[in-house]
Each structure stands twice: as structure tokens, then as C-alpha cells.
């Protein structure tokens, strides 16, 4: 018979699996937004990218991927500088590459 702890562990594993799946889509979308930012996109694109970086920064560590979370937080900070009129495109690219390099691999 499955205990409460086993049931919780299985449910957490399922949530972590779904997070990894969804992260792949978020990181792909981030890559497209960063390419548009490098090409001189508007503030709305920067805000959209920052929002995704923020979600990853907040969620990744809670789902067992702290390195991804830290990289996403660094990207969010760079995008915030760009939004404020500073920062530079190369820093955005580098921070995004750090995020992509830490993307968790889907299980199985």
C-alpha cells in the first residue's frame, strides 16, 4: 500500500517533470526574444523576456534546479538594466547562453 510520503514524493516528481517540460518551451521562447532584442526590439519584448526569466528564477530552485534559477536571475537582472536604458546586448546574449546551458534534461 502506498504511504502518504510515497504519494507526496510521486506527486512532487510529476510536478518536477512537468516543470522541466515547460522550462524547455520557456527557454526556447526566451531565445527568440533575446534574438529580437539583439536586433533592436522594443521595450515590450524586453519586458516579455524579463517576465520569463523571472518565472524561471523563482521556480527553478523550488523544483530542484538551483543553477538554472541563479542563471535566470542573472538574466533577469541584465534585462532589467536594459529596460532602464542601460545594459548591453552582449551581456543579454551571454546571460541567456548561461540559462540555456543549465536547462534540465527531460527524464527518460
Amino acid at each position: 500500500m502506498e504511504t502518504g510520503t510515497e504519494r507526496l514524493r510521486a506527486a512532487l516528481d510529476e510536478l518536477r517533470r512537468r516543470f522541466v517540460e515547460r522550462s524547455a518551451g520557456r527557454i526556447a521562447e526566451l531565445g527568440e526574444l533575446v534574438a529580437r532584442i539583439a536586433a533592436g526590439a522594443d521595450g515590450e519584448t524586453v519586458r516579455a523576456a524579463r517576465r520569463i526569466a523571472h518565472e524561471l528564477a523563482g521556480g527553478a530552485g523550488s523544483f530542484g534546479h538551483p543553477e538554472l534559477g541563479r542563471a535566470a536571475a542573472a538574466l533577469e537582472a541584465v534585462l532589467r538594466e536594459v529596460e532602464a536604458g542601460g545594459g548591453d546586448v552582449e551581456a543579454v546574449r551571454n546571460a541567456f547562453e548561461a540559462v540555456r546551458a543549465r536547462a534540465p534534461a527531460p527524464a527518460g
Partner: peptide, 9 residues
């Protein structure tokens, strides 16, 4: 994802 995680725990 966060809603599901917090609700579950």
C-alpha cells in the same frame, strides 16, 4: 507550476 507545487505541499 508554482500554484500546483504550493497547493500540493
Amino acid at each position: 507550476d508554482m500554484r500546483a507545487l504550493v497547493a500540493l505541499t
